[in-house]
């Protein structure tokens, strides 16, 4: 059975002029680590706020663990853990005080549910007397996760938990999510980082309030076989300009050290690109076919939807 069921959710702001969510539907299976991936302003936070009963949708319906987000919000508030995108614990309370406070709010105690958070808590325990406002970004996230877990939630909603966190802490954070998942907690997590998609069981690519694609990462990547080439040459700026001109080239994006280029024609792309660039006077040209990664796929989907 689906733990989170979303059906045709629509949400607009400013009297309907700004659309945040447009007919969003998806299911999250029990015990799944589900990723909502999309750029800033895609509607991820609005969706989280609807699912955590903070925001009433204009249309559509949604259930969390079988409870309706509009009617049964009291039950939902008891069983979900929510970590908002913005750090929102009491900055003037210490780590320990924050945990005790949220434990009390949910009618439990830190001692009783210590086992739930032990693994994460031990990392910040040495600083437990420190005020939450004085913690580093990674430690804040760990504390926020502890506070969201203290009442043994069935479903965990994490809104951009790794934004603004260093790469090492990000990796650690995802490792923690894996362990939580193995305990049977259903986790819905959003992120603007495409590379984190590989850590999710299934992902939904979301853009401008619409879900573009929803599946496991491999299946999504497999579905969009593209004629994709990584291109590099000495004069990078000229290369970028030249690659934008021919009609055969569908898209060209800077990607790290290289230029990712897709072609409309299927055959001999490599030879076509090499010839074209030599004609334009480029030197040290390298062209190699590559498999699209999640970002390439997202860009393609985005262009198709515009």
């Amino acid at each position: 059975m689906a733990t989170v069921h979303v059906e045709n959710i629509k949400k607009t702001y400013e009297k309907g002029t700004v659309t945040a969510l447009e007919n969003v539907s998806f299911d999250v299976k029990s015990g799944e680590l589900f990723g909502l991936i999309g750029p800033d302003g895609a509607g991820k936070t609005s969706l989280f706020r609807v699912l955590t009963t903070l925001l009433l949708p204009d249309e559509g319906q949604a259930q969390v663990a079988g409870f309706d987000v509009v009617k049964d919000f009291w039950e939902i508030r008891r069983i979900v853990g929510y970590m908002p995108g913005k750090f929102s614990l009491y900055q003037d309370l210490s780590i320990e005080e924050n945990l005790n406070f949220f434990a009390t709010v949910f009618n439990t105690t830190l001692a009783k549910n210590y086992h739930l958070i032990e693994e994460i808590y031990v990392q910040i325990e040495p600083f437990k007397k420190r005020l939450a406002g004085k913690l580093s970004g990674g430690m804040k996230q760990k504390l926020a996760l502890c506070c969201a877990l203290i009442h043994e939630p069935k479903v965990l909603f994490l809104d951009e938990p790794t934004t603004g966190v260093d790469p090492v802490s990000r990796k650690e954070f995802w490792d923690m999510l894996d362990r939580l998942k193995s305990r049977g907690i259903t986790i819905v997590v959003s992120t603007p980082y495409m590379d984190e998609a590989s850590r999710c069981d299934r992902i939904a690519l979301i853009q401008k309030g619409k879900i573009l694609e929803l599946d496991t990462l491999d299946k999504i990547l497999g579905r969009y076989t593209q004629n994709l080439y990584a291109v590099d040459a000495d004069n990078r700026y000229q290369l970028m300009k030249d690659l934008r001109m021919p009609a055969e080239i569908e898209s060209s994006f800077a990607f790290g050290e290289e230029q990712h280029v897709t072609l409309r024609t299927q055959e001999n792309g490599e030879r076509y690109l090499t010839n074209y660039l030599t004609e334009r006077g480029h030197t040290s040209i390298t062209v190699r076919p590559i498999l699209p990664n999640i970002e390439d796929t997202f860009i393609k989907l985005m262009l198709e939807n515009q």
Binding site: L54, W74, V80, Y82, P84, K86, Y90, V105, F106, C147
Partner: peptide
Amino acid sequence: EVGTIEQINVSPI
């Protein structure tokens, strides 16, 4: 402003 009210609002308080 700080956003702590969000955490309180999702709680069963």
